[in-house]
């Protein structure tokens, strides 16, 4: 038995639930009845559970982690990140982690007051609008105020920039008087002492010569820049004793300012590249760590 053609109007009426109750062929009346049943009023079980949506909405608004699905993945990532931060804090007394910008501001501000981090000081006549701590406290295991390899890299980057011997990856030029200019700063004196203490760099009076420092620093910078595909360093110096060295390695950045007429706007130079090996997943920080946005580690709703 063949069926009469169904008009487009009837189809639309059936689909929109506006088909007349009577007047339809029997098979279409059954289709209508089926459509009506599928559109029956909502049952209780279909309307419960709104609280989960509210919870997800709150989580989305507050940056917290919604339960299930991607939230679990995010949670794992945050856990890993938190673990990395904890490890960094444990290993470096908070310095490396804070300087990478992966810890909240409260940690950051505290870390910048940690003597072991603050290697660059402005004992000169330079002004400073960033908190400074004199480098009189020694870093664990080191006797000359020099901290980790990353801080040495920062010092070397600044030194090379000031002396105008920056490697190809360091942009900048300038010169200064070693006795009165920025090279006379405590930081570079510490660097000179540090280099003098290194194997193969014996120097009279425990102070390495500029040539020795340069040789040493070329090695340090070379190692860093070849070791990281993302690493780069920018140094700027002028004869007035202002020196800026921005070093970036794997997304870390910092600023080093030193000099007799100079100003210091950022965090001390050692901040430049620290911690990149510790927290490899840290997102790039485009400004000095003190201005970096805090990365919150929200608590899990747990509901």
């Amino acid at each position: 038995m063949t069926m009469d053609p169904i008009s487009q109007e009837i189809i639309e009426a059936l689909l929109s639930g506006k088909a007349p109750a009577g007047g339809l062929p029997e098979e279409l009346a059954k289709v209508k009845a089926l459509v009506d049943r599928a559109n029956a009023p909502a049952s209780y079980s279909e309307t419960t559970g709104a609280h989960q949506v509210i919870q997800a909405f709150r989580a989305a608004q507050g940056g917290a982690i919604p339960t299930g699905g991607k939230g679990k993945v995010l949670s794992k990532l945050l856990t890993a990140k938190a673990a990395a931060v904890a490890a960094a804090i444990a290993l470096t007394g908070g310095a490396a982690a804070a300087l990478t910008g992966v810890v909240p501001v409260s940690f950051n501000s505290h870390a910048h007051q940690t003597p072991s981090v603050s290697l660059v000081t402005t004992n000169d006549s330079g002004s400073s609008n960033a908190p400074h701590t004199t480098a009189t406290t020694t870093f664990a295991g080191e006797s000359q105020g020099m901290a980790s390899g990353a801080n040495i890299f920062g010092e070397c980057t600044a030194y090379m920039a000031i002396t105008g011997h920056a490697p190809t990856s360091v942009v900048g030029s300038g010169s200064s008087n070693p006795s009165t200019g920025p090279l006379a700063s405590t930081n570079f004196q510490n660097l000179a002492k540090y280099v003098a203490g290194q194997k193969g760099y014996t120097a009279t009076g425990g102070i390495a010569s500029p040539t020795q420092i340069m040789t040493f620093c070329k090695g340090v910078i070379g190692t860093h820049t070849t070791g990281s595909a993302n690493g780069n360093a920018n140094g700027n110096a002028n004869a007035n004793g202002n020196a800026n060295a921005n070093a970036t390695s794997k997304g870390q950045s910092g600023q080093h300012n030193s000099g007799s007429g100079g100003s210091s706007n950022g965090v001390q130079g050692g901040a430049s590249v620290s911690g990149s090996a510790v927290v490899g997943t840290t997102p790039p920080v485009t400004g000095p760590p003190t201005s970096a946005p805090p990365v919150s580690i929200p608590s899990h709703p747990g509901k």
Binding site: G49, Q52, V53, I54, A56, F57, A59, A60, P66, G68, G69, G71
Partner: peptide
């Protein structure tokens, strides 16, 4: 549930 979480995030 996944759909509602997605909607909540983009609401």
């Amino acid at each position: 549930a996944e759909v509602w979480v997605s909607v909540a995030k983009g609401l």
